[in-house]
Design a protein around this nucleic acid. Structure first.
Lengths: 196, 196
DNA sequence: GTTGCAGTATACAGATCTGTCTAGTATGAT
DNA sequence: ATCATACTAGACAGATCTGTATACTGCAAC
């Protein structure tokens, strides 16, 4: 059976991930119980435990899916241009578009991390996400010819995080607009166009 | 009875707030049950419900206390100088000091907001906190003579939020250091010292 | 046709949660 | 002395949580 070719039916796993993606993100990981997830997915409880083994693993898988989705969104945007400067600002464009959607409630990893009991294995995915973002900004900072790419990358991560918080707390994409504008300013400075 | 003057005994209310401050902040609002709070506070359950009426109200009170504490920390720092520029950077110094403490886990309001079910009355306190911070930065931006104080305030809030996220996710005060340095740079620009 | 896989439906165990209730204690004011 | 206040101790109700177990169905491969 070739699922990708036939795809007449969505697997229980995918339906669970979709349901978890909506409910966990919108209402919080701890407030949403297993029963609501399986009900929303239209799936039996045994299917959840056969597929994921525990709620914690479902959370892990949910966050992993979120990370992949974000990476794909950003990579798709990066592919649209060859100019590193445009690529770097494009990352903030993606963030602005995402943060402007009414259902956006901030970074899924920040939200999840606030609910984790210390020592949870879920934190690994959060770290993975942050490492990826930072590596991306570092790479782009080098490509734009920044004098100190690591410093610039730190600054860009800061703006990226700040925009996510603004979207979560203020419910607007305004922070993302500010972040993009500020990133452009920082690029000018880092590229030496505005040096003293 | 004059509590402030005598203060031989700490009231159940204060002990509950202290316990909530530790447990809710460190482990999350939803994962910490009432029983753990009263046990940590050394207080009877009836005292909690007589004083606050519900867990939600205890959460509100906990966040309100956090807000007051932050305001007092920042106001104390502001009082140390008359120079608006030093005052503004002082806000980031406070953040850096706070974020460098090992028990710091990010902004209590961001963490709480990630756990709230939509429509909770707790969000009012979060909004109050954000309004206060933004008003503070706007006032200071005006006092340093920024060309566009509202834009500068938006930028500073962004840095402030980003630093908090970094402390929460990476477990370090590095983001706060970056934020302070970047704020200083922005001040230079906003004050026109580096204009093109 | 039989075997194995993926899934459904549902009852249940055991823990934990918020909130209520009863009963009793210490203390200070009047 | 009495009375209100603030508090303690703990049982309890009722809901909800995660996770397990049982019994069944549809389907595809061999």
């Amino acid at each position: 059976m070739n699922k990708a070719a036939v795809s007449e039916k969505v697997s229980a796993r995918d339906r669970l991930l979709a349901a978890a993606g909506e409910l966990f993100y919108e209402e919080g990981i701890n407030t949403v119980g297993i029963d609501r997830v399986i009900e929303h997915a239209g799936v039996a409880k045994a299917s959840l435990y056969n597929t994921f083994g525990s709620k914690d693993e479902l959370i892990r898988a949910y966050l992993h899916t979120q990370l992949q989705a974000r990476q794909e969104r950003i990579n798709a945007r990066l592919a649209k241009s060859d100019d590193p400067r445009a690529q770097l600002l494009g990352v903030f464009d993606v963030m602005r578009e995402t943060a402007s959607r009414p259902e956006f409630r901030g970074c899924a990893f920040v939200r999840a991390s606030a609910e984790l009991k210390p020592g949870s294995a879920v934190k690994v995915v959060c770290d993975e996400s942050r490492a990826w973002t930072r590596a991306l900004f570092t790479r782009l900072a080098k490509e734009v010819g920044a004098h100190n790419p690591h410093v610039l990358a730190d600054q860009l991560v800061l703006l990226y995080d700040g925009a996510a918080v603004s979207a979560q707390m203020d419910g607007s994409g305004k922070g993302a607009v500010t972040a993009r504008a500020l990133a452009a300013q920082l690029l000018d400075i880092a590229q030496g166009l505005r040096n003293l």
